[in-house]
Write a protein that binds this DNA or RNA. Structure first.
Length: 277
DNA sequence: ATGGTCGGTGGCCGA
């Protein structure tokens, strides 16, 4: 089984590319973020036409998350327990959806950006990550064998070499100590970044800003992750980042991250089928 | 050429 995560930066603008990517990537489960659509605007047929079930959660033109699966899609959950809102703390934004796919509970997560250090949105980001950690801790306490994947755009670069140049991030979000501590708290709660081992840095990224020719200049950030619970971690057998998908006209600013389980590799593009002679 | 972007929206904001 292959599980992928991808911040698509608008499901409608990216519909054709998402379909083309599904056709060649051979993933069983795809979690997407930043669909930028309400449920009634979401182009579900991209997925259903290809034999995937899909669950989407979108409240406005902002945020929006979805999970598509061809190995079952059960027990869809909107948001996680304790998920804070922005502005009104009682009204969570469309940043988290989960479903059980092939025995794995997959969460598609879009962590708040933070905007600027000291901004209300930055405090919100830290609260949001802390609440996610607390929800994860509670889940694993109740069921240590649970197979849970926290996947998505975490908007945190955990290591210095997860950005092209730390000097360029002086005073910026995504690399501050509190953000990294919040990310580390998640991993210490039992949710490990399982793609990194197969995609070591430096210079390995999942996001390149549209501005300033970042992609050709290789100025990227590693901010998209697949975090696996202990029981799921043991099944991971490969991972990859599909840098190719960042190329060309109409690309998202993020590349898909793919993880393979049970001996399956994490190659972004399926290898040609073996032919018998 | 020393700066170069998108998407959704509605006449800017968010990333």
């Amino acid at each position: 089984m292959r599980i992928a995560t991808w911040n698509v930066n608008s499901a409608r603008a990216r519909a054709e590319r998402i379909g083309a990517w599904l056709d060649r990537s051979n993933v069983d489960v795809l979690a997407i973020q930043e669909t930028k659509a309400r449920d009634d605007q979401f182009p579900a047929t991209i997925f259903t036409d290809r034999g995937y079930e899909v669950a989407h959660h979108g409240l406005s033109q902002w945020n929006g998350v979805a999970i598509a699966s061809r190995v079952g899609l059960a027990d869809v959950q909107i948001g996680f327990p304790g998920q804070p809102g922005y502005g009104d703390p009682e009204e969570p934004e469309a940043r988290a959806i989960a479903a059980t796919c092939g025995g794995v509970q997959v969460w598609s997560l879009y962590v708040p950006n933070g905007r600027e250090v000291g901004h209300d949105h930055y405090a919100y980001k830290l609260r949001w990550l802390e609440a996610l950690r607390d929800a994860g801790t509670a889940r694993l306490a109740a069921d240590p064998d649970a197979q849970i994947a926290y996947v998505g755009d975490f908007n945190v670069a955990p290591e210095d070499h997860d950005v092209w140049d730390m000097a360029a991030f002086e005073g910026a979000t995504h690399v501050t100590e509190p953000e990294r501590a919040a990310f580390t708290a998640l991993t210490e709660a039992g949710f490990e970044d399982v793609a990194r081992h197969y995609t070591p840095g430096p210079g390995v990224y999942t996001y390149w800003d549209y501005k300033g020719l970042s992609f050709p200049k290789r100025k990227g950030m590693r901010i998209d992750f697949v975090l696996a619970s202990p029981a799921l971690r043991d099944r991971v057998s490969g991972a990859g980042i599909d840098r190719e998908e960042r190329k060309g006209k109409g690309a998202s600013d993020h590349a898909p991250v793919i993880v393979g389980l049970d001996g399956v590799d994490g190659e972004p593009v399926a290898k040609p089928k073996e032919t018998t002679k």
